[in-house]
Design a protein around this nucleic acid. Sequence first.
DNA 1: GTCTATACTGTGATAGAC
DNA 2: GTCTATCACAGTATAGAC
Lengths: 205, 205
Amino acid sequence: MTATDKGDTDAATPPRRASYANGERRRTELVEAAFRVFSERGFQSLSIRQIAQAIGVSHSLLLHHFGSREALIEAVLESRFERQAPDRETLLEERGLLDALPDLMRQNLELRGLIRLDATLRAEAVDADHPGHAHIARHRHNFFADVLAHLAVEQRRGRLRDGLDLATTAQQLTALVEGLEIAWLYDDTVDVAAHVEAFVALIRR
Amino acid sequence: MTATDKGDTDAATPPRRASYANGERRRTELVEAAFRVFSERGFQSLSIRQIAQAIGVSHSLLLHHFGSREALIEAVLESRFERQAPDRETLLEERGLLDALPDLMRQNLELRGLIRLDATLRAEAVDADHPGHAHIARHRHNFFADVLAHLAVEQRRGRLRDGLDLATTAQQLTALVEGLEIAWLYDDTVDVAAHVEAFVALIRR
DNA sequence: GTCTATACTGTGATAGAC
DNA sequence: GTCTATCACAGTATAGAC
């Protein structure tokens, strides 16, 4: 990450591990470069040639490493989720999803391009034959399952309203989060976190 | 429509109104044909050439009448909203938005392709320079304003929970509707109408 | 392994013939 | 009004340079 990385074996010549080919390293670099481009400019309107130009390589190189434009986008998405994962887990365990969610969303909204990417891909990948369909569907399902599990915990602790249908509530919360992202993209004065908080207050007893 | 077009002073064949050209008629036919295609197959994956083929005309003809693929899509969307408008107004006035909304959504979901079109366009037109941006933004804003107005009425009648922030609630309901459409597109067992109903119950006293 | 040049097909759009 | 070229650009695939 940092340019000042002196420990270890540091060198002008890249250190290689046995099992990882250099290709892996280069690929990661390209993913991060593309990540930066996407965060600023989104990806929807960018051709693979434009992306390559912004990074400073030929478009053929990107194709060589990723195989297709979609695969490149997927790789960037994947890295994005991984990057976020550690914080996410900590927050969830310490404070519970319902309380941590607003902060999690506040944090996400710092990367406008990425939110746009999520939202666009989500809508676009609805078709089962879209290249990113499986990836997005899995991600959505995992989020839904997380919400449902956390709701169950909250209910067991008696912190939810009586008579609440958990599956319904989980579905509502998922839809709310996704819908609010769109609303925020159209008007960034929309306070996503506050709306999520208000919903949580609504289902608490 | 007419192949026999000699001169408009004398020719008795097609009765024309002064301001409406025949082109208007043809355009409407094409919109309806495209509407049928979109309803079944969506539009995301269809090129303008494929749309033209499904209708049985050349792709240039569509371009001639609409100017661009986006404009064609917009025209179809527009006709769709107009088609729905009368029912909508009646329902809203008779029963109030909060109660009518679930039925309205049930009705909409009969046209899967159109819902997909709405959802996709909404995400895609987030960019201010997207051709459909103004159209979608206006439509979203109108819906939000409608919801807000109806909530105010409900509140005045004392039918809402105490201490509810109407702007927040309106934003939540809008996001919920849009988010649930996405959820339903990924899994059509999701009961959109029921979830909306449950949310309404949550904010009622 | 890393990278570029180039060619192939399909896209949205335009110009002009009938 | 409608169609047939034709355009520049897209994503992709391949061959080959270092």
